[in-house]
Simulated assay, not measured.
Amino acid sequence: MRWIAALLLAFASAGSAQAQQGGRFDEMFVTAGAPIGEVHATVWLPPGYDAGKQRYGVVYMQDGQNVFVPARSGFNKVWGADKAVTRLVAAGRIAPLIVVAIDHPGKARYRQYFPQALYAAATPAVRAVFDKAAEGPITGDAYVDLLAHTLKPMIDRAYRTRRDAAHTGIIGSSMGGLISCYAFVRRPRVFGRAGCVSTHWLLTMPADLPPDADVLGLWETYLAANLGKTAGRRLWMDHGTETLDANYAPWQARIDAAVTRAGWVRDRDFASREYKGAAHEENAWAARLDDILAWLFA
Rank of each mutant, 00 (worst) to 15 (best):
R2S: 15
W3G: 11
W3I: 15
I4Y: 12
I4K: 13
A6R: 15
L8K: 14
A17I: 10
Q21R: 15
D26M: 09
E27L: 14
E27F: 12
T31E: 15
G33Y: 04
A34F: 04
A34C: 05
E38T: 14
P46D: 02
G48W: 03
G48Q: 07
Y49F: 00
D50L: 11
D50K: 04
R55V: 12
Y56V: 03
G57M: 10
M61G: 06
V67C: 12
G74F: 15
N76L: 14
N76I: 11
V78T: 13
A81D: 05
A84W: 02
V89Q: 09
V89K: 06
A95S: 13
A101I: 00
H104R: 07
G106F: 03
R109P: 01
Y110K: 05
Y110L: 12
Q112L: 00
F114V: 06
P115L: 08
T123C: 05
A128F: 01
V129T: 06
K132C: 11
E135H: 11
P137R: 13
T139H: 07
D141T: 04
A142K: 04
Y143I: 07
L147A: 03
H149V: 09
L151S: 11
R157V: 09
Y159S: 09
R160F: 01
D164I: 08
G169H: 07
I171G: 03
S173L: 11
S174F: 12
S174P: 12
G177C: 04
G177L: 01
G192E: 10
G195M: 08
C196H: 02
L202P: 00
L209T: 05
P211R: 03
D212A: 15
G217Y: 03
L218Y: 00
W219R: 05
E220W: 03
T221A: 14
T221Q: 14
G228S: 05
G228E: 06
K229D: 15
R234K: 15
R234P: 02
L235D: 08
W236L: 00
P250F: 07
W251H: 13
I255S: 10
A257G: 09
A257S: 10
V265A: 14
V265P: 04
D267E: 12
A271F: 07
A271V: 08
G277W: 01
A278Y: 13
N283H: 11
A286H: 12
A286Y: 02
A286E: 08
L289S: 02
D290Q: 11
D291L: 11
I292M: 08
A294F: 02
W295P: 06
F297K: 08
A298C: 11
A298F: 09
A298V: 09
